[in-house]
Design a protein around this nucleic acid. Structure first.
Lengths: 230, 230
DNA sequence: TTGACGAAACGGAACGATCCGTTTTATATG
DNA sequence: CATATAAAACGGATCGTTCCGTTTCGTCAA
């Protein structure tokens, strides 16, 4: 589309005013792009986020800095592309939401821990605190993931496992928040019992069963209270 | 007392035409420490995290860089002290956990949004991704806050509002995680309805009331499933 | 078809600015 | 005298940009 528009404009200019020859020139090198992305990942793995710089990536990739800046305006943009090219964690679909959510967290933590994706993503979050464009891109990405993760909840709603008025993206936000802070605070080795307990609290709540009349009244009114305001 | 002393000194210094502080001589200067912490906060507010540097803080505080490095080994350490000197958000104690948690989130979001503390804390989280000491300090701080926030849940347990076997720090972790990601993704303006809904999901869960026998059985077994494994 | 041409991309080098963490210098104070 | 301080300076690193020579590509004329 964009390239086609530019080509069209060039032809118009050629007909109207200037018989000069116009070449499209050299093409971008996919090999260079891949080498830069590979190098970015390698530098992050080997030198950590504090050792990550465009200079280091350029050196590692045997690429010119202007080449990197031509395609990626910032460190954050580069990190985002590195993260985007990495494999995504799938949503389990076991027919049971607790199993799905626990399985999802376990897979996500293992993925973040065992590959470079954890380092990439936490670096990206850090960059987003000082780079507005990165912050916008991260917010957009997070929005998409909330919808995707929320599909597990939507399926549970369709199965009648979860109340019909539950907002799946709010639940997904809770689960993702829990994962993010675990990543940011070096807790990707959380034990499964805690994951199960946490998921259990979200699914079944924490209110007491036998607290007495006050709680019983509260439970009878639960539907009303939880009714959406929008 | 302190402010009065400084005010007097400013008048004296104005007369002398020298804006610098008096040296405390062969003693540590509390004035310098305060000036540095004040400057750190001001630089962060005015220039954002991307404009925050030890160089800028030194310039602003009219302090030598060695002086800063003598007391704070890193940007993160400085940011942590800036955050620690700021007012803490109190735990509401209304006798109702939902109100307490919603009130807590509202206060925390407002605090982070309306003062520099939000900028400080998110910068600190970002620093913790590249500085191991900062990461350890942040983890320690987060641990303390989980216990503190968990007191709202402990009180609810004592009231019989929350099941006795609920781990208060896990609940606090969920709430804090939700807050952290809101801070990191520029969502401190979240509407109260969403806060209430989120807190509601944690307190009362999201499972369906009338899903049929499967859910009823699950509810009868809930106590067993939620039994702690440790 | 071949060769020349101009445009664009490339890697490497260099640039001026800024910051880093450290050392040096001059001054003030106990 | 010993110590802390602010200011200045230091060598090194990175930033984002410009410059340079070379390569690649599409176009055109012979």
């Amino acid at each position: 589309m964009m390239a086609g528009e530019i080509a069209g404009k060039e032809e118009e200019m050629g007909e109207i005013t200037d018989p000069g020859r116009k070449s499209a020139g050299a093409r971008r090198s996919p090999e260079s792009a891949d080498a830069i992305l590979d190098a970015a990942e390698a530098v992050l793995v080997e030198a950590g986020y504090s050792g990550f710089s465009i200079e280091a990536v350029a050196r590692r990739a045997r690429a010119g800095k202007p080449t990197i800046y031509r395609w990626w305006p910032s460190k954050a943009a580069l990190l985002l592309d590195v993260y985007q090219r990495q494999k995504r964690v799938d949503n389990p679909d076991s027919g049971n939401l607790a199993e799905d959510l626990v399985g999802f967290l376990k897979s996500l933590f293992a993925h973040w821990r065992d590959t470079s994706s954890g380092s990439v993503f936490r670096s990206l979050i850090a960059e987003a605190q000082s780079d507005e464009k990165a912050a916008a891109a991260l917010a957009e990405y997070a929005r998409g993931r909330r919808i995707h993760t929320g599909q597990m909840v939507e399926r549970a709603k369709a199965r009648g496992e979860v109340a019909a008025d539950v907002d799946a993206t709010v639940v997904a936000d809770l689960i993702a928040s829990f994962a993010w802070t675990h990543l940011l605070t070096n807790r990707l080795d959380e034990d499964e019992a805690t994951l199960r307990r946490t998921v259990g609290y979200v699914l079944k709540g924490i209110v007491a069963d036998d607290a007495g009349d006050a709680t019983a009244v509260r439970r009878r009114r639960r539907r009303i209270i939880a009714r959406p305001t929008k």
